[in-house]
């Protein structure tokens, strides 16, 4: 019933025994102790659980852990650190974006992947690219400022 699965997260490979149908989110949070992706909805509707798989933003709450075997997974902490921040993270700090901060993971991971493909986006492109994310505290305007700032410094 369980399956041996090899997970490569932030450049480190670890092996777990897990139900192959279990969402990747629980493997990251509970088996590997990586709490950056959050449980928000379990329905791929909010983005709080986003990680990068081979550079693409993926909702880990609906991704079976078996599908992550052998791929490169990056979490928020793998994106950048205070010493070596990703431009979106730096801009988030500069703009003081988060309130509760529970959604931050999804927005930053999604924006980072978006800016890689669209380094000089328009306001409309940013809004569209981030339209599938939720922020309940209403920090939308600060997020827009931060993503524009990241594009400028990135």
């Amino acid at each position: 019933m369980t399956q041996r699965i090899s997970l490569s997260v932030n450049g480190r490979v670890q092996t777990i025994d897990a139900d192959p149908d279990m969402p990747l989110l629980y493997a990251l949070r509970n088996d590997l102790g990586l709490s950056n992706p959050h449980f928000g909805c379990g329905l791929a509707q909010c983005g709080a659980c986003t990680v990068h798989i081979d550079g693409e933003p993926v909702r880990s709450c609906v991704t079976p852990v078996s599908a992550a075997d052998g791929v490169q997974i990056t979490t928020l902490a793998g994106l950048g650190t205070p010493e070596k921040p990703h431009p979106v993270q730096k801009a988030y700090v500069d703009e003081q974006v988060p309130q509760c901060g529970y959604c931050v993971n999804g927005w930053i991971m999604t924006a980072a992947a978006f800016l890689k493909k669209t380094p000089k986006p328009t306001d409309g492109q940013i809004r569209e690219a981030l339209s599938g994310l939720k922020c309940r505290c209403g920090t939308h305007l600060a997020i827009l400022r931060a993503v524009k700032r990241a594009a400028a410094i990135g």
């Binding site: 709490s35 928020l76 902490a77 205070p82 700090v93 974006v97 988060p98 901060g101 993971n105």
Partner: peptide, 9 residues
């Protein structure tokens, strides 16, 4: 609390 949220620490 901003940095801890942004860097996931």
């Amino acid at each position: 609390d901003v940095a801890g949220k942004v860097y996931g620490t």
